[in-house]
Design a protein around this nucleic acid. Sequence first.
DNA 1: GTCTATAGTGCGATAGAC
DNA 2: GTCTATCGCACTATAGAC
Lengths: 234, 234
Amino acid sequence: MANDYAKFKKQNRLLIETIYRDFFNNNQGSLKIKKEAVVLKNLEVIINTTLKLSSEMGFQSMSLRDLSRESGLSMGALYTYFNSKDDLLRIIHHFGMQTVPDLLTKAIDGVSDTHKKLSNVVQTHLYLSEMMQLWFQFFFMETKNLTQEDRKIPFESELFTEQIIIDILEEGRQSGLYSIQDTTLTAALIKALLQNWYLKRWKFAKQKISIEQYLTFIIDSIETLVLVKKEVKA
Amino acid sequence: MANDYAKFKKQNRLLIETIYRDFFNNNQGSLKIKKEAVVLKNLEVIINTTLKLSSEMGFQSMSLRDLSRESGLSMGALYTYFNSKDDLLRIIHHFGMQTVPDLLTKAIDGVSDTHKKLSNVVQTHLYLSEMMQLWFQFFFMETKNLTQEDRKIPFESELFTEQIIIDILEEGRQSGLYSIQDTTLTAALIKALLQNWYLKRWKFAKQKISIEQYLTFIIDSIETLVLVKKEVKA
DNA sequence: GTCTATAGTGCGATAGAC
DNA sequence: GTCTATCGCACTATAGAC
């Protein structure tokens, strides 16, 4: 288990590139630049720089002049990849957030054992949030700045993920594997523990808690809470 | 237990006023306005409006023109209560955050039973975060906009609260009441569950989950995790 | 103690050269 | 496809009337 995250990272190293490719394919008509290689390269620089600056000062505080300076692209060049600052915000949310449900759905696809499904979802979510740390923090912190229409994206993403967990918990309850009073609240608890990892990275770094340690801890805690008790202690 | 929150709210209804009074007392020398009653009244309007607008659009996106319009005070009047927009941000963090450790410390003061201490801390924190909902959300979301120097305030507040919980858990472990592998991670888990309430209010409102229900649920979960097991089940 | 009017700055966005 | 130069606007902050 010690190098599981390294393995995950290696297996999914091309994941973020598919986000840029999706963006290119979906906007080929309206994009001013036609060469895929150029678009992918610059989009990566622009988005990485935006995520970095936003994590330091917030998206609103970041001026496009900051972004231009840090990314090495001129103001004019930036505007060939997005139509406005708000458009850039929308792009990051819209294309980034598709990755989460995709990967979680894949993680339980073909798995028949209920508890294996649950631990796969927890592990995949945790590892993905580590790999895309700045993305996840951005999703959480910058939702306010989206238009009301675009706020549906993170809203539905949260409920979709939660529903996956609820379904697994319900399945386990019905088969007699789990003993749960309230599946909705239990799913919310699991999500809170997952979210806690990427929202409080500074704290865990300070306390020298590794992602493997955190994973083991939350899996153990979840098991204590949901599994039917079989043993006596004390 | 059904109306415990109502009781807490009633008992602490003057709490927020003391925040404004502290501000007045600490800045009497430099403040341009000398009448306490005027300061308290306007400070309340200014801060409430700031918290409301920030919860909708974020502090950076809120212009002082917005604040002027919504609060009913002119731009000029606003600047007699703070020296700059950043100063307003600092004031809210600085004076608001003192309330949390104060109240938590009081909640365990004189209580000798370890587990009663723990449940008091959890209940007080949860109820306080409900009563000062917009404040807590503001603390969490707007830390980024503080100067590096002022960022110590939320930083130390988080660690102080966590230390209170760690101490109680450690006490329970040593007396044989609790069975805990890692007190630091367990305290972080408890904090995550508390934070989850005010960060995901929209979700719980949608699911019609009351604060009393949430309190019961997290207290039960924490007990399952930390108390030494005494019974068999299944 | 609060107002209106305005100075000064830096922003998002674009036009046109290369 | 990327650059520099610049437009017009909205912002923070303040001066001076009441």
